[in-house]
Simulated scan of single mutants.
Amino acid sequence: MNYLLDTHIILWTLFDPGKLSESIKEILVDSEKQKFVSGINLWEISIKYSLGKLDLGNKNPDELLITIKDSGFRITEIPHQILSAYYKLPKKENHKDPFDRMLIWQSIESGFTLLSHDSKLEQYIPNGLTLVTNRI
C-alpha cells in the first residue's frame, strides 16, 4: 500500500514524533509500505516558512527536503492530469484548506492512502478518499 503524508504528519515525524499515534508510527516504520511526500507539502512548507508562520528549527525548506529524502520518504509530483481535474473534488462547507484539498485530490486520483491529523477529512471518504487519521 502507498501512503501520502499530510504536512503535519511530515513535520511531526521529523520534529515531534510524540504527537503521532501508534497506528501512524506503525505505518511509518513498516519497510513494506511506501511513504510519499507530495510537491504540495513542500510548497506549503516553503510558503509558510517564508511568511514566518513555520519554524523549522535550524533548517530552511531546502534543507528540510534533504532531511525528508534522507528519512526514506519518496517525493511525488502532481501530474498535470490531476491538476486539471481538481475541479471535480466536491466543495465542503467546513473544510476549505487549499493544501489539504489538493492532497486529498492527489490521494484519490493516485490511489494513495492519506495520513492526516485532520478528522474533517473523513467527509471526503464517500468521494473516494482512503484515510488514516492520527488519533492518539
Rank of each mutant, 00 (worst) to 15 (best):
T67V: 13
K48N: 11
S50D: 08
D100C: 07
I78W: 03
K92A: 13
E93H: 07
L14V: 02
I27Q: 09
I47A: 00
F36M: 03
L83D: 14
E44Y: 00
F36S: 03
D62F: 08
G111A: 03
L51P: 01
S23T: 12
K53A: 09
S38H: 06
L20H: 10
D16F: 06
P79M: 05
P98Y: 01
N94H: 13
S46H: 04
G57W: 06
S31R: 15
K59V: 03
K35T: 14
P17V: 08
Y86S: 12
F99G: 06
Y87V: 06
K25H: 05
Y49I: 00
I82T: 11
D55R: 10
Q34A: 09
G57N: 06
K59F: 13
S46Q: 03
S71A: 15
I78T: 15
T67N: 11
G52A: 09
E22T: 11
S31N: 14
E44W: 01
E26K: 15
K33Q: 07
G52T: 07
K69R: 14
T13A: 10
S110V: 05
G18C: 08
D97L: 02
I104N: 00
N60T: 12
Q34H: 08
P90R: 00
K35L: 13
R74D: 05
Q81F: 12
S50W: 07
L64N: 02
I27M: 08
E44H: 01
D30E: 09
G52E: 10
I27A: 05
K48F: 04
Y86W: 04
S38N: 08
H95Y: 10
I40W: 08
L89Q: 04
L51V: 00
S107N: 05
D100G: 05
I108M: 10
L54P: 09
G18I: 08
L14A: 02
L65T: 10
N60W: 06
D97E: 07
I82E: 12
K25I: 09
G111V: 02
K53N: 11
P61N: 06
P98W: 00
L64C: 03
L64H: 03
L14H: 03
G72E: 09
E22S: 12
S84G: 00
S84D: 13
F73S: 09
R74L: 09
I66A: 05
Q106P: 06
E77M: 06
K33D: 00
L65V: 09
R74N: 12
E77P: 05
S84K: 15
K91C: 02
W105N: 12
V37N: 09
F15D: 13
I75A: 00
I108E: 12
R74Y: 10
H95S: 12
Q81D: 15
V29Q: 12
D16R: 14
N60F: 02
P61M: 04
W105L: 13
S110C: 10
P17Q: 14
R101C: 02
K59L: 15
N41K: 04
S71T: 13
I47D: 01
E93F: 03
I45T: 07
V37W: 04
Y87H: 15
S21W: 04
E77D: 15
L65Y: 10
E109H: 00
D55N: 14
K33W: 01
P79A: 08
S107W: 05
L83G: 11
L42I: 14
S38I: 08
S23E: 11
S50V: 07
Q34T: 14
Q81S: 12
